[in-house]
């Protein structure tokens, strides 16, 4: 097995075993999808209008929840030094970690979203648009989040600072993602898919390099 796959599978295993990853994010996402209707009221027509945006914000927040530990856990227990000295470059390591985070968080969130959209009474086409937009857009959340995680990995309160620096960067993903749901509901197309896909692709390709630099700086500190 290549070092890349070794790191990827280890991170996947960790996310399943240590309550840090997949399950917590899913629970958080589901709770957001439950609490909003409880606050707004059970009017399914109103909920359907807001559903896309709320579920997208919920998914982005849920994915960020486990992101602060992406590098931090390995930094604190010394694993990150060993990873840095391994045959795998830090860029490769960052990419493996981003991929593992998406597989353990973004993908399950995407798969859960059609079930949660039942709470908002979304129509069939809107559910498909939401699921598709999350499938396209959540890699961007993992990728941009990884940059934030690499910058805050040595901070004690990194978990609080991370959303503050990452969420502004995720504005395009949330806007175009929720936009795809709106397009499905109204029938008007503005090409949100294209923008979302471009943003997600660019983020996924560039962020390993930036994140690796962040890790390097923190290891040297």
């Amino acid at each position: 097995m290549t070092p890349f796959l070794a790191l990827l599978t280890r991170d996947l295993r960790l996310s399943v075993r240590e309550g840090g990853g997949a399950v917590l994010a899913l629970g958080f996402f589901a709770l957001v999808a439950t609490l909003v209707p409880l606050g707004v009221g059970p009017d399914l027509n109103l909920l359907a209008k807001m559903g896309g945006g709320i579920l997208w914000v919920g998914a982005a927040l849920a994915a960020l929840l486990s992101l602060d530990r992406l590098f931090q856990a390995d930094y604190e227990d010394g694993s990150l030094d060993l990873i840095a000295l391994s045959p795998l470059s830090l860029e490769g390591a960052a990419f493996a970690k981003i991929a593992a985070h998406w597989l353990s968080t973004g993908l399950p969130l995407t798969l859960l979203s059609p079930i949660l959209s039942v709470f908002f009474g979304l129509s069939g086409s809107a559910v498909i648009a939401l699921t598709m937009s999350l499938a396209i857009g959540t890699p961007a959340v993992s990728a941009v989040g990884a940059i934030g995680a690499s910058l805050t990995l040595s901070l004690r309160r990194g978990g609080l600072i991370l959303p503050l620096i990452v969420l502004p960067l995720l504005v395009p993903a949330v806007m175009f993602g929720a936009g795809m749901v709106l397009e499905a509901q109204t029938g008007l197309t503005n090409g949100a898919v294209g923008f979302l896909a471009a943003f997600s692709l660019a983020a996924s390709l560039l962020s390993p390099f930036v994140a690796a630099q962040g890790v390097r700086l923190n290891l040297a500190g």
Partner: peptide, 23 residues
């Protein structure tokens, strides 16, 4: 290093196997 770089939920052999593969 100072730290042992171990994950609480990994067994001893899993932990070692991961690092062997990583290297």
């Amino acid at each position: 290093g100072h730290h042992d770089a171990l994950k609480a939920s990994f067994t001893v052999s899993e932990q070692l196997a991961f690092f062997s593969k990583l290297y």
